[in-house]
Write a protein that binds this DNA or RNA. Structure first.
Lengths: 210, 210
DNA sequence: TATTAAATCGAACGTTTGTTCGAATGGGTC
DNA sequence: GACCCATTCGAACAAACGTTCGATTTAATA
């Protein structure tokens, strides 16, 4: 019962529409008509629109955060095994790479990354509350590892640099399917190339003299 | 006629509510009741909600972009006068400093910075279309000066690094009144200190080996 | 085939939304 | 004091929203 064809179709269509118009601007009628199901199906399968939003986010975010956590713990483990500190570059890579490569993990996964990139800046409490709650643990681990990589960095400097990292990453996530800035020099890049560009940029920023 | 007390009050209240809930989630009734004016006053003074949104954004953004453009042109002029290339750090400073110090320019200016930081990530076409149109010229100049500072950088690398800069800056703008990430190490910083932290981070990122 | 529970459907509910309109109000000018 | 134009006001409009409900269909079980 947890998985029905109608239920899955609603989730897929909602994910796509939420990604491109936001959850608030997307009506249940737009979702159900695009999915070819009855309007009442949403409330039958989910109970309320807010629950649907939560399920769209958590459905894939749990997987993504699992990948990020595993990569981060691997970085920590190999550093401990070698009796050294984790390197800033590999910590960043462990968080960024699963994120930007996630769109290749399946149909609709690209929409999800756009959606998450926007949830971080969403003024709507509904979406952001759900999102923050799911992100908190892995974000905490990410912050800890960055601190272990640069123990000499003052906590407040680390905090703000972490914000700059999250800002650059989320902006990249939002524009992963279309160029985020409308400039003449706009050029699309492959996902692996983007990973290299972004982690290089962020590593240099994190390692800058404070 | 261009400035009436009612008109200004509507703009101020709308700016505050838009900043904290988004323009789409803010109803005209919420604005007019908070402003203590009649509901019909909005359509009398602005014609439509979309025009009000546009006016809220453009009212201060024209000023802010003027400051940014002046600073950028000064950087270029002094570089030309000295027969050298502009430095990446001073180009970044010319764009970032007016932005993050703008909240001190008057009552409500802080709300505006939050608002603009969100407009950049807004899925709603209305707000983003207005915003992009107003930002395009100064963004173009910003990109040109960064290219002049690092002529050896490949255009596509420059483009994406510019996106990372905009992402980090807009995320900082969104969280300027409250800590953006809910972490234990969260610490507030004064605006000038934030400017120094951000430009230091971004300079290192821009100057990283490609 | 008869029974039963899950699933789908059409239709309506009450709110809230942006917008419109004619009447009422307000000073400033002849 | 009479007139006038800008402004304000109360009231209503149609449309769109999330949600609810009873009837109907579907599919599996006995």
């Amino acid at each position: 019962m947890a998985t029905s064809a109608t239920r899955e179709k609603i989730l897929d269509v909602a994910e796509e529409l939420f990604a491109h118009q936001g959850s608030r601007a997307t009506s249940l009628r737009a979702i159900t008509s695009a999915a070819g199901v009855n309007l009442a199906a949403v409330n039958y399968h989910f109970g309320a629109k807010e629950v649907l939003i939560e399920e769209v986010i958590s459905r894939r975010l749990v997987t993504l955060n699992g990948q990020r956590e595993q990569r981060l713990l691997e970085v920590r483990a190999s550093a401990v095994a070698a009796g050294r500190r984790p390197e800033t570059a590999e910590v960043l890579m462990a968080f960024v790479e699963p994120t930007l490569l996630f769109p290749q993990s399946g149909t609709g996964a690209g929409n999800f990354i756009t959606l998450v990139g926007r949830a971080m800046a969403d003024p709507d409490e509904t979406a952001r509350r759900i999102f923050v709650r799911l992100m908190q643990p892995v974000l905490q681990l990410f912050a800890e590892l960055l601190a272990e990589a640069q123990p000499e960095l003052a906590p407040e400097v680390l905090y703000w640099r972490l914000n700059f990292v999250i800002g650059a990453l989320s902006h990249t996530m939002r524009g992963i399917d279309r160029c985020p800035l409308p400039l003449e020099i706009a050029v699309a890049k492959s996902a692996p190339e983007l990973v290299r560009l972004l982690t290089g940029f962020l590593s240099a920023g994190m390692l800058a003299a404070p």
